[in-house]
């Protein structure tokens, strides 16, 4: 079987942070930090309300890559910098590009922007076995 991968391949993925996503991700990940699930705590922290876990924003970047790869077991490395919080009702668009394939290792760079065009991740890179 097999999908063929090429340098220069691009892929996109869109996820919305619906009202309950931070609560659902908290339940799945175990991170119940109040800034993610309690609007008052999000306000007190100066964030304007609850924010999504950075690690969920990161997971969606991985999802963008695994949807392209067709196999979630191939990912060997993930690296991101969290540059802006994701708020309730934000829609994040992930745009990936394969920058290298060498020695069975694929490298993709991924941009993640909210609906205003602001980067929510910077320097996001995923590596995978191919």
């Amino acid at each position: 079987m097999g999908k063929t991968y090429f340098v220069g391949d691009t892929f996109t993925h869109v996820r919305e942070c619906d009202r309950y996503r931070p609560t659902y991700y908290a339940a799945a990940s175990g991170d119940f930090n109040p800034i993610h699930i309690d609007p008052d705590a999000g306000m007190a922290a100066g964030l304007g309300g609850p924010i999504l876990h950075g690690l969920c924003t990161m997971a969606w970047a991985v999802e963008a890559a695994t949807n392209y790869l067709g196999d979630p077991g191939r990912v060997t490395k993930v690296r991101v910098r969290f540059s802006r919080p994701v708020a309730i009702d934000d829609t994040i668009t992930y745009t990936g590009k394969v920058t290298a394939i060498e020695g069975g290792k694929l490298t993709a760079e991924i941009a993640a922007k909210n609906q205003k065009g602001d980067d929510v991740l910077k320097g996001a890179v995923i590596e995978a076995r191919v």
Partner: peptide, 17 residues
């Protein structure tokens, strides 16, 4: 102060499923 803390960067090297 955990209210002043943000998660800045993250990296995982995944060696096995």
């Amino acid at each position: 102060n955990l209210l002043m803390l943000v998660h800045g960067e993250q990296e995982f090297e995944i060696l096995d499923v």
